[in-house]
Structure formats: structure tokens, C-alpha cells
Design a protein around this nucleic acid. Structure first.
Lengths: 194, 194
DNA sequence: CAGGATACGGAGACTGTCTCCGTTTAGCAA
DNA sequence: TTGCTAAACGGAGACAGTCTCCGTATCCTG
């Protein structure tokens, strides 16, 4: 890639990240091009679709996912807390931009989506959590990481669209956690808390 | 309202219902006007915003909600089954049109939304379910119908965006039900099933 | 049936998407 | 350094959707 091309590409991504954060994922792409000081043709050559551009923006985001999973797994102790910690991290990660939760969650089930590979990072990170819980025999057996991602993605979606804050999301995530763990464990855990 | 005005209004709603079902809530309004055989000015006079039009379309839908709640409540027996029956009905109701779940769920938390009043019907119907469960002391105490609507709305949203079928949605709803009911009851219920 | 209130319709202003192609530039080879 | 070519640029403009404005047509009441 020619030096000027790379320069423009990087600048577009940088500006788009900023604009998308402010205005959401449906902001005008011609505006992004203008703010980046390039013609719209240049933007569309580098990123034929909006999704391609979003994909590029997410690159840095991907790195944080595994890190967040590590952090959640380091959290020794009650499985319910582990699950809640991961859920909170998960919601935070996919809610960095408005419209993110819906976009990411739907892309996870659509292999033809340009951001599908990026989303796989989330699935595999969730897999690590699932494996841990599985080893401890505290997770409902008919549930996999796909279910987990859908459930948490759903909560994140409504939180995103309804502007719910962390405090409002917390009880929803607790319901998920309690529903996902095997009943006996939940019972014991909740008794223990009291 | 003049006779011709009413005729046009009704026709627009009828056509819009059809078009939205086929193409989703972001279909072109000028197309709707054209198919209804009226000018776009006429459409926009009757329905200044897209939301106003959707509101009108939903009128018939509202009637079904209470009916569905009645049906679910008639369902004597295990609270878990009652909850699951209502969830399934709920998802069906808000998923009649593509984009419906997200739109409805976000409107529920936004009093300024033109469809907010319509959404209240769903909330109050859910209230009836909650009251019943509350009377039986099987529902987590810190959970209200708002939480219920958000959780089920979230599942419906991801199902809508990911084209999940009923079978894929079922386990997600089960997780919600198990997370919402008090642990002791879940444990008893699940043991009883085995 | 006359007149005014009411409603119609579609041209067109405006915004956003995306393409096409004439012009410019980077980078290499001589 | 210079000349050449492939690579990249940029923005005009075609296209599609939203929404408004206002001249025209229709209803309906007295």
C-alpha cells in the first residue's frame, strides 16, 4: 500500500471512530470523509461498505476482549460472581458505541457479516468462561456460550436503546446468572449470602 | 374529519401494514403513499412521523395483548409454565414486524415516544402476570414487570435480528424464567420434572 | 347551489449513499 | 535527477428517501 493511501486510511478510521461515538453507527459517511479531509470516493475505495469501516474501528477493541476474560477468570470464588463479572465486562465491551450491542449480537449469527470474525473473539472468550463453569458443574448442561452471548447481547441491546445505566442493568444480569446456574447452586449461594 | 380524508387515512394504514410486514419498519414512506394511491403530502399530513404511522398500525395489535394475557393466566398449574407461556406470547406479539422488538422495547422507557401509550398495554398485561406470581410467592422480590419486559424484549430483539426460530428462543426464555423465580421453587420444580 | 373550510397531490428542496472517471502523485528504474 | 506508470485521489453527479409548500380540487353546510 502506498504511503499516502495508508495515511488516508488511518485518518479515516480515526475520524470515523470519533464521529460514530458521537452520532451512532448511522452517521453520514460523506461527513466522515469531509472531516477526514478526503473525498468520499477515497473513503468508499478503502471501505466499500459501512460495515467494513466499523470492522476497522473495532480492531483495537478486539484486543481488550481477551484481556477482560483473563480478568474475569482471575476472579476466584463464587461462580455467580464470576459470571456477573464477565457479563458486566461483556456489556461494557459491546456498548462502546451506540447501536453496538444489536449490531454485534446479530453479526455473531451471520457468517457472511464483515464483522463476523471480530465477533468470534467474543464467542471464544465466552467459551473460556463456560469451560470453567462446566468444570465446576455449576452451569445448566443444555446451555452453551452461544446462548450466553445471545442473552447478554439482548440485555445490552435494550440497555443501549433505552439508555439504561449500570444500576438498571445489574438486576437483569443477575436474573440471567441465576437462570444459567444449576438451581441447587443458586439456592446454596443465595442462602450463603443471607 | 371529512369522508375522503378518513378513506385515505384508512387506506394508508392498511397499505403500510402490508409494506412494513414485507420490508420492515424502515420501508420508504413515499412508496407507501404511492401504493395507497395518494400523494406523499397526504401521507405526511395524516402521519407527520413514521412513528405516528406505526402507532396507527398497532391499534388492532393492542387488542390481542390482553387476550393473550387472559389465555396465559387461564393456564393453571406450575408457575414456570405460566411464565413461559406468557413469554412466548409476548415474543410473538412484539415480533409481528421486523424491527418490532427493538422499537417496542425502547419505546416502553420513553414517555415522549408516540407509541408509548400502546406499549403501556404490554406493561400492564405483564403486571397481571407478575401479580399472580407475587401472590404465590414464587417471584424474586426485587423484580418488577419493567424488568420482565426488558429481559423478554432483549431476547426477542436478538431473535428478530438473528432470525432465530421458536426452538432457538425457547431455551433463552427458560433461562429467564429460572432466573426470575425464587431458587427454592425452581429447584423443586426441576426435581419434580425428573 | 354557492362559498369557505378542508384536504389533496406532487414538484422540489434537502440529505445521505455510492460510482465514475479525469487528474494527481508516489515510487521505481534508468 | 528525470521520466514513467500503476496507484490513489477527489468531487461531481446519479440515485433514493424524507418532508414541505402551496396551487388546486373536493366536501359539505346553510
Amino acid at each position: 500500500m502506498r504511503a499516502d493511501a495508508k495515511r488516508n486510511r488511518d485518518r479515516i478510521v480515526e475520524v470515523a471512530r470519533e464521529v460514530f461515538r458521537e452520532q451512532g453507527y448511522d452517521a453520514s459517511l460523506d461527513l466522515v470523509a469531509k472531516k477526514a479531509g478526503v473525498g468520499s470516493g477515497t473513503l468508499y475505495r478503502h471501505f466499500p461498505t459501512r460495515e467494513n469501516l466499523i470492522d476497522a474501528i473495532m480492531q483495537s477493541w478486539v484486543d481488550r476482549v481477551d484481556e477482560a476474560a483473563d480478568k474475569a477468570l482471575a476472579h476466584e470464588g463464587d461462580p455467580r460472581d464470576l459470571l456477573l463479572a464477565w457479563f458486566a465486562a461483556y456489556v461494557g465491551l459491546i456498548s462502546l458505541h451506540r447501536g453496538g450491542p444489536a449490531k454485534i449480537t446479530s453479526a455473531m449469527g451471520d457468517e457472511s457479516s464483515p464483522i463476523w470474525h471480530k465477533c468470534q473473539v467474543l464467542t471464544t472468550a465466552t467459551d473460556r468462561i463456560v469451560e470453567r463453569l462446566r468444570a465446576e458443574h455449576v452451569l445448566r448442561e443444555d446451555i452453551g456460550s452461544v446462548h450466553l452471548c445471545r442473552l447478554v447481547g439482548g440485555v445490552a441491546s435494550v440497555a443501549d436503546q433505552g439508555n439504561l445505566d449500570e444500576a438498571a442493568v445489574r438486576p437483569l444480569l443477575e436474573v440471567l446468572a441465576d437462570g444459567l446456574l444449576v438451581p441447587a447452586h443458586v439456592a446454596a449461594s443465595r442462602v450463603a449470602v443471607k
